[in-house]
């Protein structure tokens, strides 16, 4: 009996499938508990009239979604989310590709530069954004001070006080935050390009731009797609940057779905409407994810 058990244990310990399941189980449990459960709860909430003060669930069908759609702030937040995500991610792709090109080259102090580039990503998002809040302050902004010293402006820019500059600011900060992650992903792709291809291109006498647009970027396309996917999801689902910088203001001009879901659901108390707002982009995000991953895979197997 003892021998049989010992044999079975040895067999289980040597079984890669068992080990894979064992090692993955904490991650699966984590995802179920901290992502899956709240996600299902949000779907349930969105079809009820639950409020922060009353946990009772009374199902109201699509009424909550209809109420949300009738809200002019929601429509503004939806447009802002689109603008915010698209512009930020275009900038992320351009800057991350350029940065990755620089960082794969050899130069003195590369270690320090890489560390500094990664800093926005490793710093806690709220802390980093508060730093930007001070930097963009209406009265004490050091950016304004520099611009004044250079004679470029005569009065402060009020970065977060005017709709145009406020949206520019939140896009810039979000770009600054996500570029390091995208740059690391693109760097991994650049390094993986077989050296015989780059050598052949060099021998053929292709210049920098030709190599970039006709060789490097096509080869990197699946990797860039992954970076875009991460960037889009992080931009659409994260509320920290907008909430800390503007709370959606001025006049809801930077209000995005994630902040509006929080303000509506938690600060306003209309939890069901907050859940409906939060879920609104879920089908869009699923579609984007599927398309991007499909495109990436197609390019990969070509």
């Amino acid at each position: 009996m003892t021998t049989t058990t010992a044999t079975k244990q040895r067999y289980l310990g040597d079984n890669p499938r068992f080990l894979a399941g064992l090692f993955m189980s904490p991650a699966v449990l984590y995802i179920i508990a901290l992502v899956g459960f709240p996600f299902v709860l949000a779907i349930i909430y969105a079809f009820t009239d639950i409020s922060t003060g009353n946990p009772e669930l009374e199902f109201v069908g699509w009424a909550t979604f209809r109420r949300v759609l009738a809200d002019p702030v929601f429509r503004e937040a939806l447009w802002n989310t689109f603008l915010f995500a698209v512009i930020a991610n275009v900038m992320v792709v351009v800057l991350a590709t350029a940065l990755a090109e620089i960082l794969v080259r050899d130069f003195k102090g590369k270690w320090l530069v890489r560390f500094l580039v990664l800093l926005p990503w490793v710093a806690p998002v709220s802390l980093a954004t508060i730093t930007w809040l001070w930097t963009l302050d209406s009265i004490f902004s050091p950016i304004d001070w520099v611009l004044r010293q250079l004679g470029l402006i005569t009065e402060n820019m009020y970065w977060l006080g005017q709709p145009g500059t406020a949206m520019t600011s939140v896009i810039a900060v979000q770009t600054w935050r996500i570029v390091p992650l995208a740059a690391v992903i693109v760097m991994a792709g650049l390094i993986a390009i077989p050296s015989d291809i780059t050598d052949a291109v060099a021998v053929d006498g292709a210049g920098f731009w030709r190599r970039m647009f006709q060789v490097t970027i096509p080869l990197l396309a699946p990797i860039i797609a992954v970076a875009v996917l991460f960037g889009l999801i992080l931009t659409i689902s994260d509320m920290s940057v907008v909430y800390v910088l503007t709370r959606g203001g001025p006049t809801n001009s930077t209000q995005v779905l994630s902040t509006w879901a929080f303000i509506k659901g938690i600060e306003g108390g209309a939890l069901a409407q907050g859940a409906a707002v939060a879920l609104f982009l879920l089908p869009v995000l699923i579609a984007i994810t599927a398309i991007v991953l499909r495109l990436a895979r197609r390019r990969e197997v070509m």
Partner: peptide, 21 residues
């Protein structure tokens, strides 16, 4: 006033008056 009043948080008016602004 200036557009800064559109960007205020709960501490901004405190900071502004104490800074002499």
């Amino acid at each position: 006033m200036t557009p800064e009043v559109f960007a205020w948080n709960a501490a901004s008016n405190n900071q502004g008056i104490n800074a002499g602004e």
